[in-house]
Design a protein around this nucleic acid. Structure first.
Lengths: 337, 337
DNA sequence: CCGCGCTTGGCAAGCGGTTGCCAAGGGTTG
DNA sequence: CAACCCTTGGCAACCGCTTGCCAAGCGCGG
């Protein structure tokens, strides 16, 4: 038979369709003997429940959507991976959607998918807070690397991490740093900057910010030039891609790293350990972030809507020291090259 | 209203539900005036068609699944990205599934998703040919970087590319190479090896193979040791991850690249341009591969089943020369280090 | 002015499950 | 042994949309 239905199974097993449905839906509800008979019949017929028919009445699709602001950023790969694995473990299917850094597209996709998925993972969303609150009010949402009051979220600790970066640089004798900012409406960019600035103030380091820059390797060139113009001896880039772009540009300009200037990134992407020099960066277990996000989401799906307390999880980050940071050059560099 | 249905829209517009359905389904079938009225009503009510109800009768889900043999391999990122973008353009949703290098899991996922998606993209599948033929006979399937008689596929050209690698090495004076093989049932691994071997024979280069190795950085250590043991002056690794692992191990053992030994990879992942030395590798437009695969699949979905001729597309690869290959060392190395 | 063919819209029967409600049967208790 | 409860399975009404079939209405030619 092409597509056996519960009716076929019910007939074969000599029970009612509702019994078959329950065997698959709420196992405890049916006596063992009956259940075995039904399962046996189902197996023989090659029966497979139709997820759409199921979703139609039950409103549950066993699917979650992950909307990523820019799928080309390797930083997300680990995230996606962690989410995918956890989703599979919970018998959920993961739908991957790229928002291409467009808030409009992000909203559109959420609207389009609302009926077909049980919940959303929004990674590094660029929406304004209230928009996100609205979205989350209407459907299960977990934010990733973005924090909004009253909405569940998982973020990789940016504050203490940024402080560690400054402390690291200060201990190397740096007295000034420049932060190459990420996208304007990136929560992470804002968090990093305020934390860097505060820590810098506290430790007597001069901190300035330039940007915003698109967080890509190719933006690194312009960013590097701007950074050098500030005369700072340490460059903290919004993320590793940007930092790698900076390293390249510095190499082209024969600025030595870390002798002349130190460079720090964020994310600890795979490539950070491969570039030359290897990159000091604030990393963390990104796959755990994805995993945790799915976990919270699935958890909340199990409960009656709105009874959930919207957990705000912060996962620890860690400063990974590599070769791109070193002692500050002897004389404070003030001249622009 | 929480979830307006076509009934609500029909009532508001003063038409039958079938009319509303047709307005969304087959636009030409309804007069302009009526259509506008219906759309207007739909907009006012915030109506959004329920994809599950739609799929239930029409059997079309506007969704395709991409099953990837190992989601942690950065090589797939570009592929995924290209596929995702093309899918979105065709108004399809992309479901991403990780098979974790397990053929059993791959089959299971296909079975599980068969009812919920319109077709499958199988990337670097490790299934035996006949299994894949069976799968493809029962549902729309496009293979990626895998070729099976009678099944649609998109692959990045491995043969001429491998030949170019050998030619490149030969021109640098190398007279022996070792291929660090990928997974046993990887079609790509087999294709690469036969092409390398044939080209080597033709050009008077001695070629041996060791392995199989898991295509990861961490496998590179053992692979490098084995490679050195062969005395070959050129190492061709199954992919860039493995090659990067090899580079690391060689550096640890103070074997100079490319002075003592040349190293070549496959895939041209992002990191190939960042490692030290930068890696010569056979690349290609992976995102185009993903894009083309979706394109073929969507195309075939539009036609009546089985009327399609199962195109076998080969996209060009290109040898990217970087710093990991150089002239062969003067005396043939025969001693094991 | 009538008949004809074509376009447009309505009717209603599913698509494959889910689930509230009910009844039968078996077991338990006094 | 009767009364009662609990477990188990069946009935049937949907869930929201699609689609084959049919009929009404229209314009047109004769």
């Amino acid at each position: 038979m092409a597509n056996p239905t519960i009716y076929d199974v019910a007939r074969a097993a000599g029970v009612a369709t509702s019994t078959v449905s329950r065997v698959f839906g709420k196992p405890g509800r049916i006596a063992d003997a009956t259940r075995d008979r039904v399962l046996q019949a189902a197996r023989e017929l090659g029966y497979e429940p139709n997820p759409h028919a199921r979703a139609l009445t039950s409103q549950r699709t066993q699917t979650i959507a992950m909307i990523v602001s820019d799928i080309t950023n390797p930083h997300f790969f680990e995230l996606i991976r962690g989410a995918e694995m956890r989703a599979k473990a919970a018998a959920y299917t993961l739908v991957l959607v790229n928002a291409e850094e467009s808030t409009r597209m992000e909203l559109e996709q959420v609207r389009r998918l609302t009926r077909s998925v049980d919940g959303f993972l929004l990674a590094a969303s660029r929406q304004p807070d209230d928009k996100l609150a609205d979205l989350a009010a209407a459907r299960p949402v977990v934010l990733i690397n973005r924090r909004v009051e009253g909405v569940a979220s998982v973020v990789l600790e940016p504050w203490e991490g940024s402080r560690q970066i400054v402390a690291h640089l200060a201990s190397l004798g740096h007295t000034s740093l420049v932060y190459l900012a990420g996208p304007t409406n990136s929560w992470m960019a804002a968090s990093r900057w305020t934390a860097l600035r505060d820590a810098a103030a506290e430790l007597g380091v001069r901190a300035v910010r330039t940007g915003p820059y698109t967080p890509t390797v190719s933006s690194g060139g312009a960013a590097a030039d701007a950074a050098i113009g500030t005369g700072a001896t340490a460059i903290v880039a919004h993320n590793d891609l940007l930092a790698i772009g900076v390293l390249r540009r510095l190499a082209d300009r024969s600025v030595r790293v870390p002798e002349d200037v130190s460079v720090v990134g964020f994310d600890d992407i795979f490539a950070a350990d491969l570039c030359t020099p290897t990159l000091t960066t604030l990393g963390g277990a990104h796959s755990d972030v994805g995993r945790a996000a799915v976990e919270i989401l699935v958890e909340s799906l199990g409960q009656p809507r709105s009874s959930t307390p919207s957990p705000q999880i912060v996962l620890p980050s860690q400063l990974v020291l590599r070769a791109s940071t070193g002692t500050a050059p002897a004389g404070e560099r003030t001249t622009q090259r």
